[in-house]
Design a protein around this nucleic acid. Sequence first.
DNA 1: AATCCACAGGAAGCCCGGGAAC
DNA 2: GTTCCCGGGCTTCCTGTGGATT
Length: 409
Amino acid sequence: MHKENIDGIFDQFLENTLIFSNKEVLRHSYTPDYLPHRKEQIENIASIVAPALKRETPSNILIFGKPGTGKTACVKFVGKELNEVASRKDVPCAFLYLNCEMVDTQYRVLANLVNHFGREVPMAGWPTDKVYVEFRECIEERAQAVIIVLDEIDKLVKRGGDDLLYNLSRMNADLQSAKLSIIGISNDLKFTSYLDSRTLSSLGREEIVFSPYDAEQLKDILKERAKIAFKKGVLSDGVIPLCAAFAAQEHGDARKALDLLRVSGELAEREKKGKIMEEHVKRGKEKIEIDGTMEVVKTLPAQSKIILYSVLLLNRSKKDGSSAGDVYSMYKKLCDVVGLDDLSYRRVADLISELDTLGLINAVLMSRGRYGRTREISLAVPSKTVEKAITGDERMRVLMNVSSKQHTL
DNA sequence: AATCCACAGGAAGCCCGGGAAC
DNA sequence: GTTCCCGGGCTTCCTGTGGATT
């Protein structure tokens, strides 16, 4: 009897998929078999990488493009094909993918690579050069052609991993039989300015740019996925164009378009509607924005939460943006209220920059002439959402009692 | 033209914890 | 245990700077 009950609970969710037939297709982890409007780039990458199959060294590649322009998907696609051909023809060839957002230091990248070949290297503890030696032995041993994909390579470089790139790009010279080449993927066009010129000339032998999708192209992408993702006839006509139009506004980000389509579907499903309407897309857009900021703010470290709350309070009492100095003195007061030690100005300045890159605040460098140079800081997301997310944290609850009037400067 | 504000942001170094090796 | 190495968070000290005011 109990069992029946439990089954019943899940049946409710499993059977009621009026909308989706395969939701996975709409997630970004999914690599599709067909990438509309990227034929040129795929062929380009493939032609550069192809020498690996003839036991020659492929040139290194740098790939640039805004988020959601299909860089990762294309590279992974080529990699998959390459691995297939290589194993069919019995050519020793390895195509390794690493995301430098997670694996963001020289040591960790190397350790990851070596572990990939089945040798054990601890994730900490060894001197770096020892890991280098290990890596070289790995690939020499099998006389492999190794293609390393470093996704979000700009993150690695900004955190001081440029040594790694230098060393890797130079390594080819003293390899006996193995071949090594690197594909770097970056969102940031200017990241090359952080690189040593020798590294750059080797790494950027080939450059490929992925331009943002326009609304028409996004429509094609969405249509392609929608075929697999949804049951027949659940999409009303305006849905895909609307998703595409919203995403086109946001720099042609295909991921956002897919997210929007998925969330719209989920909304429709939750309401037990058999059809996704344009209205679902509009609400879906709001939901994504709010959920996104909630999540980001909630996971912020305590110090950053206090800084963000300072910006919020200052924004409420002033019309224009506040200076970094204002934020800091407010921050110190709030630290006192919460009962946390305050950090140095220098440190807070860095945390402010982080909040800026997260898109939670806008920090614009302004020169006020005689009155100095400072960043004018304002909130970039709805203050209600931020307030809700921060005061949801037990430790921050006392901040609810602080009104902006009490603490104007 | 010189001054000078209110910071920006680089460099160096400290301290800690995680982990390996001896 | 002691002694290494790595990397993150943080502080201290520092030099650099756009432009309104003098």
